[in-house]
Design a protein around this nucleic acid. Structure first.
Lengths: 221, 221
DNA sequence: ACCTGAACACCGTTCAAGT
DNA sequence: ACCTGAACACCGTTCAAGT
């Protein structure tokens, strides 16, 4: 027992690595969310002094960039049995959505971080190439891409925090009692049953793809 | 001179009011953005001690809620010379967009704040009522509403910070030099001319409205 | 009723010092 | 090369004290 402790004490701890730091950060983020991550907490977690982190990461922004890179580069955006342009686009944004749902803080991370890894542009490349096939020019295809991303990220953000983060229409309307009468349609929509995020996502993507198809596939009719 | 100073010194300062606190916060936000607003800075700005604020606002979250309420309730979302359902919807989200562009921090404010004023639901009510006219059921109309808001807010966020906040495709691609070859479509799209946010916004709304129209106005053809 | 200052428990980061 | 502790300049908020 005593010898063992001695042995342990003699073992020099291996130096911390950059990837251990990033992994530690992701562990905290997955468990407790973006606000729980501080340099101090992370260092404690790794049983290091706060300043030890600065040997492997130049500051907190850098740390967050590493986390973003790590998470985004894991995602496979391309539908390898590709075929229909609609399915390639749908698959790609579904992959983005799934990645964000698996690590809910990434939506805000993406907004906060100063420079994102180039992997974030894979969905854009896929979208542009798919829309080129149906005759969209690159500019309009870019606009279509931003339409798709904005919808996807917004939708995930809603799924994670509620619409506009944390306000469900029901709750908000109940809080502002006086106004209930002025939102009759919302009242009706709310009492109309459960909200299915999966379905709402597919609905949104379909509406957008329909709109795009109408624009570029007129010959097809 | 001496008498005047004395006079001023005798005047008891009127007590701070809640609306002065909110106005002070908006002043800081407009000039220096969301990150610049702290209770301490605001108090300094109002020439009060930090803790004086807590007599008029229960905490920072409450302050931010007041700011959000103040800004959102100023917006006029309804097109009074209404007519076409498309125009009513377009007007409403254009109003939301303009408000956000005038106070760029509101996009993040909306995401951060725990409880938003019920005025934020005016666009939803307008959208639901417009879509009911063309035969959408309340559930689908809600989904359409979220599609429209997510797009609008995402687009504004892009206009204010760059896509995903602060990363322009050009910049990101230049940073990740190796990969330039793997994003040929993006390269082409970028070299294709200036980006017109106004146009991109209208494009997105139109694509969405086209998609919705296709869904619900089949009889009309 | 309204304001104040000191104090507490947090941040990120710099810097000089250790091995 | 890697780690440490003290220090600096910030946070939001509590609490006891003042008028």
């Amino acid at each position: 027992m005593h010898g063992r402790r001695n042995h342990r004490r003699v073992q020099k701890r291996l130096p911390l690595t950059r990837s251990q730091v990033v992994a530690g950060a992701i562990r905290i983020l997955d468990c407790e969310g973006l606000d729980a991550l501080s340099m101090r907490r992370l260092a404690d977690n790794l049983r290091m002094s706060t300043m030890a982190l600065y040997n492997h990461v130049s500051n907190k922004e850098d740390l967050l960039q590493c986390v973003a890179k790590d998470l985004i580069e894991r995602v496979d955006f391309s539908h390898h049995h590709a075929s229909d342009w609609r399915e390639r686009i749908r698959f790609c944004f579904r992959a983005l959505r799934n990645a964000c749902l698996a690590h809910p803080y990434v939506v805000r991370l993406i907004e906060i971080v100063e420079t994102l890894p180039s992997a974030i542009f894979v969905p854009m490349e896929i979208t542009l190439s798919a829309l080129e096939e149906i005759g969209a020019d690159p500019q309009e295809a870019s606009r279509a891409y931003f339409l798709l991303t904005n919808f996807t990220l917004g939708q995930v953000s809603y799924e994670v925090h509620g619409p506009f983060s944390g306000v469900e229409p029901e709750k908000a309307l109940r809080n502002a009692k006086l106004d209930e009468a002025s939102f009759p349609h919302i009242e009706r929509a709310i009492s109309d049953g459960e909200w299915d995020f999966e379905y709402a996502f597919d609905f949104g993507i379909s509406v957008i793809l329909d709109g795009l198809e109408k624009r570029y596939c007129k010959r097809g009719r």
